[in-house]
Amino acid sequence: MLADTTAPGTEASTTASTGGPTTSSGRPPRSLFAGRPRPGEAVIRLVLRLAAGVAIVTTIGILIALLIPAIGFFREVPVVDFLFGDRWAPRFADASFGVIPLVTATAWTTAIALLVAVPLGLGAAILLSEYARPGLRKVLKPILEVLAGVPTVVYGFFALQFIQATVFREWLQLDTGAFSVLAAGLVMGIMIIPTIASISEDAMSAVPMSLRQGSAALGANRMQTSLRVVFPAALSGVMAAVVLGISRAVGETMIVAIAAGNQARIVTGPLEQGQTMTGFIASAALGDSRVGSLEYDTLYAVGLLLFAITLLVNFISIRLVRRFRQAY
């Protein structure tokens, strides 16, 4: 700090007058502390900090915005009744706020979506990173990207009209109503494939070639190399992909709002309809409920639960990755 305020010349001249060291040009050496100011550097640093700050501030903001109304809600409804109650009827005269029915619908749609997206997404990633020649990659990658770019409302109608109405009811003659968690979950799974495939592929492509060669030189075939060397080495990236997939499935709104159903009942089978947590928020947030009413605060309580679930999934996955990853 002191050196910043001292002009470079003063220190240098004192050194010279006392017969101190000189540089090859005969002038006394400049102090290392008397750096030139670099305003550009400071601006860039500020911009970068702001960019990082926006994400943090937004997260904190969302948390606060969720917490305040949720606290209001929990003043009237005990947390235990909310978390473990099995009847969800916030708008009835005989109101009940047990969130279990919404959670079961979300669990079904998410599980079905992951059953579709994890194997297909990882399969696509292994294909792209370990097997595909450049020609096939050129075709496959854009197709995956198109899949990622389809608006979710389109997926929702695809699930409702084609999968549920045409495939399930007309072609397969399944005993199901207008909606089902299976149709919503399947289509949501297709929606998530590109996310999982793309992030896992990046992680697997980043595994050094030398490990693949080492494996091949021992007489391992391509599948063994992919599954036993490349995959474990890329595990943290793959897990990140799956967690992002779970988060998207839990948080996806439009598809389930359109195709999963709108009655909050405990879902016991894939062909039943059910309202998910996000589905409830979407339908209740359409403007019918008065701001500040208990019903309005219910939205925030469900939102907070969603937030907590996503956080928990992240937390567990970080622990799992630390335990099983093979960092290279």
Binding site: S210, G214, G219
Partner: peptide
């Protein structure tokens, strides 16, 4: 490649335990 093994310029152990590095070849 099983009959004609190879050692590379840069050591390339797998990111596994010492034991699993050796057991890998016989296993696969």
């Amino acid at each position: 490649r099983r009959r004609i093994g190879m050692v590379f310029q840069k050591p390339n152990p797998f990111p596994k335990s010492i034991y699993d590095n050796i057991a890998y070849g016989p296993r696969v």
